[in-house]
Lab assay of single mutants.
Amino acid sequence: NQASVVANQLIPINTALALVMMRSEVVTPVGIPAEDIPRLVSMQVNRAVPLGTTLMPDMVKGYA
């Protein structure tokens, strides 16, 4: 199964993503693939992302 990017902490709106904020986990539904974690670093989220939430492409500015 494909691992997705999951929030490792609460990520406030407009926060630039850092490695420590993300982990990979096999979840349903599938979100952003875990292999894209390096690409996500320094991109901003466009909403608050609670701990344990799967990151979806529409949550990250400039990802989709």
Rank of each mutant, 00 (worst) to 15 (best):
N1W: 12
N1M: 15
N1I: 14
Q2E: 15
Q2D: 14
Q2T: 11
Q2G: 15
Q2M: 12
A3C: 14
A3L: 12
A3K: 10
A3R: 09
A3P: 09
A3Q: 10
A3V: 09
S4H: 02
S4C: 04
S4E: 01
S4W: 03
S4L: 02
V5N: 02
V5I: 09
V5L: 03
V5W: 03
V6K: 03
V6R: 02
V6F: 02
A7D: 00
N8I: 07
Q9D: 08
Q9W: 11
Q9I: 13
Q9S: 12
L10H: 15
L10P: 13
L10E: 14
I11D: 00
I11G: 00
I11M: 03
I11F: 00
P12W: 04
P12Q: 12
P12H: 10
I13Y: 13
N14Q: 11
T15L: 04
T15Q: 10
T15C: 05
T15H: 07
L17S: 00
L17M: 06
L17E: 00
A18S: 13
A18M: 12
A18R: 12
A18N: 08
L19T: 09
L19E: 05
V20A: 15
V20H: 13
V20F: 15
V20K: 14
M21V: 03
M21R: 00
M21S: 04
M21I: 03
M22Y: 02
M22R: 00
M22N: 00
M22T: 01
M22P: 00
R23T: 05
R23L: 04
R23M: 05
R23V: 05
S24T: 12
S24I: 10
S24A: 14
E25M: 10
E25P: 02
V26K: 06
V26A: 09
V27F: 03
V27Y: 03
V27C: 05
T28G: 05
P29W: 03
P29E: 06
P29I: 05
P29D: 05
P29N: 04
V30K: 08
V30H: 12
V30D: 11
G31I: 02
G31V: 02
G31C: 03
G31Q: 02
I32P: 01
I32H: 02
I32D: 00
I32K: 01
I32C: 04
I32F: 02
P33F: 09
P33C: 06
P33Y: 11
A34C: 07
A34M: 07
A34K: 07
A34Q: 05
A34N: 05
A34H: 07
A34T: 06
E35S: 12
E35V: 10
E35Y: 10
E35K: 08
E35F: 11
E35N: 11
D36H: 12
D36E: 15
D36Q: 12
I37K: 05
P38T: 10
P38I: 09
R39F: 11
R39L: 12
R39M: 14
L40V: 05
L40H: 01
V41S: 03
V41N: 04
V41M: 07
V41R: 05
S42Q: 09
S42D: 11
S42H: 13
S42C: 09
S42F: 13
M43C: 06
M43E: 04
M43R: 11
M43F: 12
Q44W: 13
Q44P: 06
V45G: 02
V45H: 01
V45A: 04
N46I: 11
N46Q: 13
N46F: 09
R47W: 06
R47N: 06
R47S: 07
A48S: 14
A48G: 07
A48P: 08
A48M: 08
A48E: 10
A48D: 11
V49H: 01
V49C: 06
V49P: 02
P50R: 07
P50W: 08
L51Y: 14
L51N: 10
G52M: 05
T53G: 08
T53M: 13
T54P: 06
T54A: 06
T54H: 02
L55A: 02
L55D: 00
L55Q: 00
M56W: 05
M56D: 04
M56Y: 07
P57M: 07
P57T: 06
P57S: 08
D58Y: 15
D58S: 10
D58K: 10
M59W: 07
M59F: 12
M59H: 08
M59Q: 04
V60P: 01
K61H: 13
K61T: 13
G62I: 04
G62F: 09
G62R: 09
Y63D: 03
Y63R: 03
Y63V: 04
Y63E: 03
A64I: 13
